Amino acid sequence: MRSDVGSSGLKVFAAAVVAVTVGLATAGCTNDDPGGDATVPPSVASSSAVAPSMTFEEAYRKLPMDGTTDLPITWDLAGAPDTDEVLAARRSLAFIYWQMSSSDWSPITPIGRFLYTEEYFEKVFAPLANTTSDNPSIGPIWVKPIGVEGTGADQATVIFCTDLGYWHEVEQKNPKVRTKRGTVQSYVMKNVESGDGERHWLADRVFDPDVDRQAKYGAECTKWALHQP
Score class of each variant (00 low, 15 high):
I138H: 07
M189T: 01
A88H: 00
P127T: 07
G79Q: 03
D210Q: 05
V20M: 08
V40D: 14
I141P: 02
T39E: 13
R91Q: 05
G9V: 02
V158L: 05
Y217F: 06
G139C: 01
D37T: 11
R90Q: 02
D66E: 14
V22L: 10
S103H: 09
S53E: 09
A14I: 09
T162R: 10
A129S: 11
P72A: 02
R199K: 14
I146C: 01
D76L: 05
G139P: 06
K123S: 01
A153P: 03
A89G: 03
F121Y: 13
F121N: 00
I138S: 01
A19Q: 11
Y60T: 06
D208F: 13
V158S: 00
K190S: 14
A14F: 12
A27S: 13
I138L: 08
A225L: 03
G6H: 15
G6K: 11
L202K: 10
I146Y: 10
S137G: 10
V148E: 07
M1S: 14
T30A: 15
Y97F: 13
G28Q: 06
Y217L: 00
E122K: 07
S43A: 11
A27H: 15
S194D: 10
D66H: 13
Y120E: 01
G182M: 06
A225S: 05
L115S: 01
A94Q: 04
A49H: 04
T74I: 09
P209R: 01
D4L: 12
W98D: 06
I146Q: 04
E193G: 07
W105C: 05
L10A: 09
Q99N: 10
W201C: 04
V18M: 12
V22M: 12
A156M: 01
V5M: 14
G6Y: 12
D104I: 03
V86T: 07
T39Y: 14
L164H: 06
Q99Y: 07
K62N: 09
L77Y: 15
N191E: 04
E118S: 15
P175I: 05
D33V: 05
E149W: 11
D82H: 11
A19K: 15
K62H: 10
K216N: 09
G195R: 08
